[in-house]
Design a protein around this nucleic acid. Structure first.
Ligand SMILES: NC(=O)c1ccc[n+]([C@@H]2O[C@H](COP(=O)([O-])OP(=O)(O)OC[C@H]3O[C@@H](n4cnc5c(N)ncnc54)[C@H](O)[C@@H]3O)[C@@H](O)[C@H]2O)c1
Ligand SMILES: NC(=O)c1ccc[n+]([C@@H]2O[C@H](COP(=O)([O-])OP(=O)(O)OC[C@H]3O[C@@H](n4cnc5c(N)ncnc54)[C@H](O)[C@@H]3O)[C@@H](O)[C@H]2O)c1
Lengths: 209, 209
DNA sequence: GGGGGCTTGTGAATTCGTTCACAAGATAGG
DNA sequence: CCTATCTTGTGAACGAATTCACAAGCCCCC
């Protein structure tokens, strides 16, 4: 739908707007202005309107936006009207936390598989799923396609695991390993690098006024 | 040291460069060019040189950069030459994963305290520390100042906890709660919002080619 | 010691993202 | 029906970040 490439910063804000809209919806409000949305998100009303304008024109001049309708539109734009089938690879400390995380399921990200290379874990039931060997991934994906693989293995193993995921035919990857990963251009990769986030904080704290 | 405000994107890249430099150091290389650094990080050599130029001029024309020296400089710039005292508030699934995470300590982020509001957890020893009540935070901080508080409590409790952290006099906060938090301007807040990251992935997958 | 080959450091040009500012609609009230 | 008020949607202006392009410096070798 969008005519030109949408900036990453815009997509992040859409995600925020959606959260605020859901709050407004829960609070029983039926209409909201760009000004009110902006106040919540620490941005400006012009920014909100510009962000939305890339995707169409959803409001009524003089009135604002219908909360229910805009919520629906945001969901569609972000691809949240469907369920996403997610597998977690590496059921260690962070993998286990993610497997149990309710916030994922709430947004339609369903964890449908856990994979590990540790034979002590393979075959065990954890969080209502049986942990499987990474070697089974390609076959499993053929049987029931997976949309997103979450990588939660130690950094030195991450590139190899990503290669296996790609070879299995999975085209969406979210990684928590603090390294730069390489994937073919038809695979979408998103890395959450907590080490980098902490270093960013360290920089900010070290260089205050 | 930097003459003007440094862009967030620049700081993120510095953090990447540091990681690559450490790899080069471990591999025994003594010298590196902006071209080589760029290749690793998926950026351009001009970008690398521009990023570094905000902080000084660290290379030798015709030769490149001394790996050891540049590593040192990066550490100093990012504020990683010292140890940071970190407390984790909310010892649930993600809080526990973070408390055990080696990647933090390796970079000088030392977890020195765990806090929770659950009386079943308070007083228990977990990961070599005794879990304490959040009410003790202000006193504890007076005794031994804390640099960074990691917020790992449920979203509805997060703003209240942040207010307690701020009241206790801690001025660096890293939050994992998927909501917009508000802090006074002398407190530095950094939020890692995994829900947003997943939605970003959802958007990208829904709008490919 | 001078020339050739590299690579840095940085203004200038360009691209990208945000903010401004206002015409175009919409509503409400007299 | 006309006016006052409100808020959207969007070109245009502005500002920030990236990329270009090249002079300046360094090393090596002949
Ligand atoms: N623990 C945290 O809070 C945290 C925070 C940020 C980032 N991370 C990153 O997440 C990743 C995992 O960290 P962790 O603390 O959960 O480590 P962990 O050691 O607790 O868990 C790693 C898991 O991956 C499995 N594994 C190892 N190699 C594998 C392979 N080739 N294929 C499949 N599974 C494999 C191990 O058996 C183990 O179960 C690391 O890259 C780490 O840097 C962790
Ligand atoms: N689990 C994950 O993988 C994950 C991923 C991303 C974000 N998060 C976010 O991290 C936060 C924690 O998630 P979780 O899954 O670890 O939840 P959890 O329920 O496992 O843990 C929450 C902990 O916080 C404690 N707590 C609650 N209120 C408190 C208060 N007022 N003061 C101090 N402690 C308090 C609870 O006792 C519990 O120990 C949530 O905001 C969640 O959205 C979790």
């Amino acid at each position: 739908m969008p005519l030109k490439r949408i900036a990453d910063s815009t997509v992040r804000r859409l995600s925020l707007y959606l959260r605020f809209l859901e709050e407004f919806e829960n609070a029983g409000l039926t209409t909201v202005s760009s000004e009110e949305l902006a106040a919540r998100g620490g941005t400006t009303s012009a920014q909100v309107r510009k962000d939305l304008s890339f995707f169409g024109s959803f409001g009524k001049r003089g009135l604002g936006y219908q909360v229910g309708e805009l919520t629906q539109r945001m969901r569609r734009i972000l691809g949240l009207e469907r369920d996403w089938r997610v597998v977690i690879i590496g059921v260690g400390k962070i993998g286990a936390a993610l497997a149990q995380y309710e916030g994922f399921r709430q947004r339609g990200f369903r964890v449908v598989g856990l994979y590990d290379s540790d034979s002590a874990k393979i075959g065990r039931e954890m969080y209502d799923l049986y942990v499987r060997s990474v070697d089974a991934l390609a076959d499993d994906n053929r049987e029931q396609p997976v949309d997103i693989a979450v990588i939660a293995v130690p950094a030195p193993a991450a590139q190899r695991v990503v290669d296996q995921v790609v070879a299995a035919g999975i085209t969406g990857i979210m990684s928590f390993a603090p390294i730069q990963l390489h994937v073919p251009s038809d695979v979408t990769l998103n890395t959450v690098n907590m080490a980098m986030e902490l270093e960013r904080l360290s920089y900010a704290l070290s260089n205050r006024e």
